[in-house]
């Protein structure tokens, strides 16, 4: 099906490419956390700007879907706007900023605060899919390490963090072990969001366009953040609450107010903040 307006196929990609990507997604779902190579296509956005997520979304989206796109937790950041309008134009689907109403949520760097539901699909944009990449530059070698479940190297990194800093110093892109088998990069979400991946009712799909890898966490699959028994994983926490809605349970962005070093903390998830305000949360 071609949309009249653009001359491009529904959701831009041709059906052959979509089929190829769907096959990779099915394989990824069957092997939770395993990075499936796929023949990524050039998209009309630059690599590194979400081409992996866009290809995944283009392959799973249908005319009845409702799409939400966020970047840094917000629907209004420029890249989120750009991707949302791309699908509105090429697929003509309905879009929303409300987490509860979306059937597909494409994201960069955040998972919404509102708990996800069964039937929702999260699509992540992934820059570097390989959690071992900073420790081992060779792709041939890291694939072998995954194949043999040889993860001593990953723990060397965590050990070093503790002996140097007294804590595991990864604040985002914090690796998880999926289904007790593969170690996986959750993409650069803050570790605050990691617990949302564990046994989530939603399907989580990760697309790395430049590196040409797709991986997945199927619904209700355990995703354990790596840690030591005596140094358990802990997400970030704040002493402040959101200055707008008063939320004490959300990830906060720090906003610089003036040259005097005045700061305020507000929800990074703009939909969460807005819906709390609608329901009569605190305003200033």
């Amino acid at each position: 099906m071609t949309t009249e307006e653009t001359g491009y196929n529904f959701a831009y990609l041709d059906e052959d490419s979509k089929r190829m990507i769907r096959r990779a997604i099915l394989k990824a779902v069957a092997l939770p956390g395993y990075q499936v190579p796929f023949a990524g296509r050039e998209m009309p956005m630059p690599y590194g700007w979400g081409t992996g997520g866009i290809q995944v979304t283009a392959s799973v989206i249908g005319p009845d879907d409702v799409l939400k796109v966020i970047d840094q937790g917000s629907d209004d950041t420029t890249n989120a706007v750009s991707i949302r309008s791309f699908f509105a134009k090429t697929a003509g689907v309905a879009t929303t900023s409300r987490t509860a109403e979306a059937s597909i949520i494409q994201t960069r760097h955040r998972i919404p605060e509102r708990p996800l539901k069964s039937g929702q699909i999260m699509v992540y944009q992934v820059p570097i899919p390989e959690p071992l990449r900073w420790l081992e530059p060779s792709e041939a070698e890291t694939r072998t390490l995954h194949a043999l479940k040889e993860y001593g190297l990953m723990y060397v990194k965590l050990y070093e963090d503790i002996s140097r800093h007294g804590t595991i110093a990864s604040s985002y892109d914090y690796p998880v072990e999926v289904f007790g088998r593969h170690i996986m990069s959750p993409s650069p979400i803050p570790r605050f969001d990691n617990p949302k991946l564990d046994r989530s009712p939603a399907l989580h799909l990760f697309g790395a366009g430049r590196e040409k890898r797709i991986y997945a966490i199927p619904p209700y699959t355990p995703a354990r953040s790596l840690d030591f028994e005596d140094y358990p994983f802990a997400p970030q926490s704040w002493s402040q609450v959101c200055a707008l809605c008063g939320a004490a349970d959300s990830y906060l962005d720090e906003v610089v107010m003036d040259d005097g070093g005045q700061r305020m903390f507000v929800c990074s998830d703009s939909d969460y903040c807005a819906s709390r305000l609608e329901k009569g949360g605190r305003t200033q």
Binding site: Y47, Q72, H109, R191, E254, S268
Partner: peptide, 13 residues
């Protein structure tokens, strides 16, 4: 060039 994109969340972390 993607590092021109916002990284507020990671930077905050």
């Amino acid at each position: 060039s993607h590092i021109k994109l916002p990284h507020y969340v990671d930077f905050q972390a």
